[in-house]
Design a protein around this nucleic acid. Sequence first.
RNA 1: CGGGGCGUAGCGCAGCCCGGUAGCGCGCCUGCUUUGGGAGCAGGAUGUCGAGUGUUCAAAUCACUCCGCCCCGACCA
Length: 568
Amino acid sequence: MRYSEMFLPTGREVPSDAELISHQLMIRAGLMRKLTSGVYSYLPLGYRVIRKFEQIVREEMNRAGAQELFLPMVQPAELWQESGRWVHYGKELLRFRDRHDRECCLGPTHEEVITDLVRNEIKSYRQLPRNLYQIQTKFRDEIRPRFGVMRCREFGMKDAYSFDMDEAGSEISYRKMFDAYQRIFTRCGLNFRPVEADSGSIGGKYSHEFMVMADSGEDAICYCGACNYAANLDKAEISRPAENGPACVTPPIEEVNTPGVRTIDEVCGFLGVVPEAVVKTLIFSADGTPVAVLIRGDQEVNEIKVKNFLGCDLLELADDAMIRKVTGSPRGFAGAVGIKARIIADYSLLVMADCVMGANREDFHLLHVKPGRDFLIADHADLRVVRESDPCPRCGAEIRFARGIEVGHVFKLGTKYSKAMRAAYLDREGHERTMVMGCYGIGIGRTVAAAVEQNHDADGIIWPLPLAPYPVIITPVNVNEKALFSAAEDLYNALEANGMEVILDDRDERAGVKFKDADLIGIPYRVTVGPRRLAEGKMEIKTRRSGEVIALPVSEVAAFLKDLVLRT
RNA sequence: CGGGGCGUAGCGCAGCCCGGUAGCGCGCCUGCUUUGGGAGCAGGAUGUCGAGUGUUCAAAUCACUCCGCCCCGACCA
């Protein structure tokens, strides 16, 4: 393509509303433009990158035995009512009514539609397993879109759904997708890591997220330096302590006056104790029922773990009214002794035998409280947020923290949707059985943004070759020098004849301008056609990533480039 | 939704406190010179100052309302 004919608006100014470097560069390099909050247009150059990535995704999905289809974006409310998500999905689901006043929504994901399709068409074990996928636009009315295409409302996603006869089959399907994802992100040249994850509102048994490592990533992950354990911080497990508490003699409970002392810090300062000796009592509302969660004073409750442990739909910190109801006191003095709520405790309580906690009485705390003696704990569980000092739950080695961008997620759904929507088949014996499902997503635009986040320098984007919109740009230094320009054109024609995607920067601009633009848009190889080298019968090839320059005889350039580009 | 910030030319911004003339840099158009890392000179075009209402002889500037965008918290590919 001739640059002069391209729709490629580049800019030298950093857009004022872009925070992340990938967002800034994607705007400056003319890859995309914002239409409205969380909604973006891809320009020709950006769309090329998108299509490159989609092609890699397609190839690997097909290789893994999945089949591509295309599902509707507009979906009827009935399906969502059937799965139960019409109520549970919340405001992210964009709902509207058509002219007949029928309730509809824009698909934020497609479990309902695919399950409906499959249950209508697949009736026999002979037709299983199946894995169906699509690359489609999703709409999620995000609370707060940000970071450009990284977290937007309308976005492209590859979503795949597997249907198996049983759990064992589903495990195999899951593994295939896991492996396909490894290949996809490896082919893109990304530094990534699969981590164990919480399955969130999509539901299901367990899942892995694929994280592109980036300090700017929204997700915190931890991983083990010794074994291959890695998990989202929300999910990271903490082992149950080995010992069952110190065998000390705990003095009887003592109630002390602590006027206005509410927080752990204040309690420690007032009573002269360390946070490790204090028990924090948090009152949660689990689907409206109060639950007291106990944890050591220096530690933090992981609400996702609490939610999963309780199996509730909505978990939030209790309001003042509920706190007063179960503790008989205002916020800040809750404790386990005499509380009118179910008590669950983090494992950290197992080894506490003489602790400080709220007295459920305004301006009072208790000393020398012993769990088991002074109150009963219904359940102990892993309920806290991991810390860097925690050992790896698998091998006990040191754990490390990092940040990442979630570009893919694989879920084992079990029978959550197939049961609710009655997706069943007849087995060999003629018995009706429920299909076992899995679902597998990849954020298309987000992966591209993550690639930019991970591959750029002060001059702009550095595309990994497999994602590059064009692998090569030819830059004649002066288009007004006939011999020079026609040498550039000859090379351009030769490469195009070879089926290569190449830009000829035929603009009547100064060389510096063209170099800056070529760097900004991140083309991996730039051929500079200038008078000095051409006088020697040579052209220069500059590698964007390394900055390395080599000069080759004009006659060898085309073959050399073809080799470079096809080698990968 | 709660908290904070911003809206003036295609982009980045100044002007607003203290009301009276809309400005700078980049980009864009024309011409000449220039041509290996964002050229120089000369000339030129471009604005319902986010929208509405009010105060005033007079509003980008003051007041109120609304809208949009961005950032910090609860969601997820």
